[in-house]
Measured scan of single mutants.
Amino acid sequence: MPGGGPEMDDYMETLKDEEDALWENVECNRHMLSRYINPAKLTPYLRQCKVIDEQDEDEVLNAPMLPSKINRAGRLLDILHTKGQRGYVVFLESLEFYYPELYKLVTGKEPTRRFSTIVVEEGHEGLTHFLMNEVIKLQQQMKAKDLQRCELLARLRQLEDEKKQMTLTRVELLTFQERYYKMKEERDSYNDELVKVKDDNYNLAMRYAQLSEEKNMAVMRSRDLQLEIDQLKHRLNKMEEECKLERNQSLKLKNDIENRPKKEQVLELERENEMLKTKNQELQSIIQAGKRSLPDSDKAILDILEHDRKEALEDRQELVNRIYNLQEEARQAEELRDKYLEEKEDLELKCSTLGKDCEMYKHRMNTVMLQLEEVERERDQAFHSRDEAQTQYSQCLIEKDKYRKQIRELEEKNDEMRIEMVRREACIVNLESKLRRLSKDSNNLDQSLPRNLPVTIISQDFGDASPRTNGQEADDSSTSEESPEDSKYFLPYHPPQRRMNLKGIQLQRAKS
């Protein structure tokens, strides 16, 4: 015994090295194993092979420090690593049964499904019991997946119906949107047309105001020219009257000059006056001389005659003075006559000038009245044309509004008919989907599995289990394997941990 101590140590070291070499393959693929292994699927088989106990299973599945599946799978690998070579062998058998691809990844061999460990530990009855539990578990999982698949199909059909409904609603909204954009385009076109009409109206108003201003300026210029013409006519008439007055005065002077006595007659009258003065002096001298030589009687007679002569001279002087006064009065009367005649001529000139001015103003008033009548006639014609244009424009607008209203009513009726057609199509689609759903539900009910399987069917299934373990590994792997896509769409199922009653199965096998 003492001599065998070193050999035992060498043997233990060799086993430990082999164990480390075995687990080295697992550690190399630890990331892939932790990512894809579900500990809840492996722990029943590991407990059946007595590699882990209930406490280890509870620690792996329910520990609060292991929230994710990767953490739980890593903890399970750590626990199996502590179990040595047996933990490695049982772990590979569980991978061979549940995850053939991972088994091939770790060992590089094809899975054979021999279950040597569980046969050694529990015997064939334990293997049968384990396989029966796994089959029931798989059936329950398949039923749950079928239910989930039916629910998802129903949800899918519902979503398809909602999608069709949303599509129809979208078509309806597109119809309304198209109608909205069309009405918006019509409104924009009408606004552009309105702005264009306003611009045209403004341009016409500006043109009309400009023409009116030009016409008023032309009328004012015409009036100024007419006033200048009238003033020139007035000056012409005044000059004609002055010329006529000057002509009359010149004719009067000419007549006075023609009626003036001649120079010879004046000289002859002056000679006669001198001769008479000479004779008068001679007679006076004779009379003076006679007075001195005459007697007293003759002197008395001469005195009487002288007195008579003096009286006659006085009378004559009075007559001469009277004649002079009369001549002066006649001259003054002639001057007054000439003055009055001049005033008369001036008044006649003024009267004729005023008459011509009156005629001029009368003509001017007639011209202004004619212009006013023409302006009123043009204004009435413009008003009439404007009223006709406004009436025609309003009539066109009324007809346009009428046609637009008819078009809008027809478009609304068309839209309502399209919407009604879309709604009826939606109703038809809904009815078809309901009919299809009812038909599929009836087919699913016919094809669904019963909840409680008979014992004979279970025994028959387990009677055929042994050949399947040898020759149909691919079928078992397809039913027991969970793909990543299934984990996305289906909830994980945790079967209840219970042991099955095998009395009925044993009785059935005894009868057979």
Rank of each mutant, 00 (worst) to 15 (best):
E110I: 07
T112N: 12
N25F: 08
E121S: 14
V60A: 00
M12V: 14
E93M: 09
D9H: 11
I79W: 02
M12C: 08
H81N: 05
R72T: 00
L77Q: 04
A63I: 01
N25A: 12
L33M: 09
G123N: 15
V60G: 00
F130T: 15
N38E: 00
E24N: 12
Q48C: 05
M65P: 00
K16F: 12
Q85L: 08
T43M: 05
L15E: 13
G5N: 14
E27Q: 06
P44G: 05
A73Y: 00
G123Y: 15
T43E: 01
D56S: 03
G123P: 15
R72W: 00
K83D: 04
E110H: 06
E27V: 06
L77V: 07
F130A: 14
V60P: 00
G84H: 08
E110D: 10
V119P: 15
M32A: 08
Y88S: 06
Y45T: 02
Q140K: 14
L80Q: 01
K104S: 03
D56R: 02
P6T: 11
Q140T: 09
D9L: 09
V51R: 02
T14Q: 12
N29Y: 02
E96D: 05
E57F: 01
S34T: 14
L80M: 13
L127F: 13
P39D: 00
D146F: 11
C28E: 10
N71Q: 15
R113S: 15
Y88L: 07
V60I: 04
P67G: 06
G126S: 15
M132W: 08
N25T: 08
N29G: 04
D146G: 12
G126W: 14
I136P: 07
E101F: 07
E121H: 15
L61R: 00
H81V: 07
L42D: 00
K69S: 04
R114T: 14
W23F: 08
I37N: 01
E110A: 08
K16Y: 13
L127P: 08
V51W: 01
L61N: 08
F130Y: 14
T117E: 15
K137E: 09
N38C: 04
G108A: 05
N38S: 08
S68R: 01
F130I: 15
R113E: 15
Y11N: 11
D56Y: 04
V51H: 01
N38F: 06
E27N: 13
K50T: 13
L61F: 06
P67L: 10
I70T: 05
T82N: 06
E59N: 00
T128N: 08
E57P: 00
A21W: 10
N29C: 04
L80E: 03
G5A: 11
D53K: 04
P44S: 06
E96V: 07
Y88N: 07
G123V: 14
G4P: 12
L138M: 05
Y36P: 01
V106T: 02
A40R: 03
R35H: 07
Y103D: 03
K69A: 02
R35V: 02
Q85P: 03
K143Q: 08
I70G: 00
A21L: 10
E122Y: 04
E13N: 14
V135G: 08
P64C: 13
S68Y: 07
I79Q: 05
R114K: 08
C49T: 13
G108V: 08
D10V: 12
T14V: 12
R30E: 01
Y88A: 06
V26E: 08
D56T: 02
Q141N: 12
Y36V: 14
M12K: 14
I37A: 01
N62Y: 15
N29I: 01
C28K: 03
P39K: 01
G123E: 15
N71K: 03
K104A: 08
D56W: 03
L22K: 14
I70N: 04
S34Q: 05
L127T: 14
D146V: 13
G4W: 11
L76I: 03
G87V: 03
K50P: 03
T14G: 13
D17A: 14
E19H: 13
P64Q: 06
T14R: 12
R86F: 06
E13P: 12
D20S: 11
D146L: 10
S34R: 01
N25S: 14
L105P: 06
Y45E: 01
Q141V: 12
K16V: 11
P6H: 12
D146H: 08
V119G: 08
E122M: 03
K50H: 10
V26R: 05
L76V: 03
P64S: 13
D53A: 05
L102R: 04
E19K: 11
Q141L: 14
N133E: 10
T82I: 08
S34K: 02
E24G: 08
S34M: 04
K41S: 04
I52L: 10
R114L: 08
K83M: 01
Q139N: 12
C49Y: 15
T112W: 02
P6Y: 14
E27T: 02
E19R: 11
P67N: 07
L77H: 01
G87E: 02
H129W: 15
L42M: 07
M8R: 13
K41W: 08
E13Q: 10
E93F: 04
I52C: 03
V51P: 02
G5L: 13
Q55P: 07
A144Y: 11
K50R: 11
Y36H: 12
E27G: 06
R47W: 01
L77W: 03
I118E: 12
D17E: 11
Q139S: 14
F91Y: 04
P39N: 02
R30F: 00
Q85S: 08
P39Y: 02
L42K: 02
I52D: 03
P64I: 04
K145D: 09
V89D: 15
D58S: 03
N71Y: 03
P64H: 09
D146Y: 09
N29W: 01
L15S: 11
M132E: 04
H81A: 08
F91Q: 06
T82K: 09
G87W: 04
A40Y: 12
E125Q: 15
I70L: 05
E125C: 10
I79R: 03
G84N: 05
Q139T: 11
V51M: 06
L46N: 03
E7A: 10
E19W: 12
S68D: 03
L131K: 04
Y99T: 10
C49F: 15
A63D: 15
L105A: 11
A63S: 10
L138H: 08
E13H: 12
N62Q: 09
H129Y: 13
K16R: 13
A63L: 01
P39F: 04
I70A: 11
L66A: 00
E19D: 13
Y36T: 14
D20A: 11
D10G: 13
R113P: 06
V26W: 07
E19M: 12
V60R: 00
Q139V: 14
E18Q: 10
A40H: 09
I118D: 15
A40F: 08
L46Y: 10
P100K: 07
G126V: 09
E96S: 09
